[in-house]
Amino acid sequence: MSVKIEKEQIKDKPELLLWKIAGSLGTESINDISSKFEEIINQNYKFLIAEMSNVNFISSAALGQFMGCRQMLVEKGGDMVFSGVNLDIKTKLSAMGALKIFKFYNELRTAINAYEWEVEKKPEKVYLSFPPELKFVPAVRQMVSRIAKQKGYSQRDAFRIETIVDEICNNAVEHGSVDQKKNIEATVIIGKEKIELEVVNTSDPNKIEHLKEISNSLKTLSPKHDERRGRGLALIKMLSNKLDINFSGDGTSVHVTKLREE
């Protein structure tokens, strides 16, 4: 049994190389790994994804060789990760302690996304479209909050983001969307340092001036016992770092920037 290692350059990522590995990574494979890796070092790559979905065996010697390769990349400020490792091999690698050293991704796309997020600091975009009804808002706000947590935002930041999304969407439902057939469109751009939210809803053109007045008056906090509503925008303003509201044509768009704080 032998091993086949195909190298592939990923577009627009000059420091990242993909190895598509197939076959068995037995003891005899370490020379192949070593010679291929030398090319990586000579060509100044810093990051390596080893795609393993067609690998059926890995020996401790091959794992040791990979550890050495990773160490050299780490010393250059890079890393080596695995994608597509099947469950049997992953269990074996786990027993050998590899899960504490390497990052494993189920799919190649996920590994590339992680590279874009960690190394290129490329933000991720999520689009959400939902009917203008209150009952959809909890799911939307909780989803955005979970994404923030998944991306390493603290519990406290995730809670603030959840509140901001909730308040914007509630306002979009309450003050906009005269045409019930048109969905509310939300865009979430989540980066390592900040999260940006934009929520767009339709509104009655005849009410635009009235909405402008509301938005101006609601930006100040005025907690009084007799007012059960009307604190949403003020809360968004206090929890976020930037708040813009635009009324144009037949729609309203709210844009919020929230910096990562912890």
Binding site: F159, E162, T163, D166, E167, N170, P223, K224, H225, D226, E227, R228, R229, G230, R231, G232, A234, L235
Partner: peptide, 16 residues
């Protein structure tokens, strides 16, 4: 776990 501005509004209403 969670309260928003609308929820807070009714808490103030209960207090009053």
């Amino acid at each position: 776990r969670y309260v928003n501005s609308t929820g807070l509004g009714i808490l103030l209403h209960f207090s009053k």
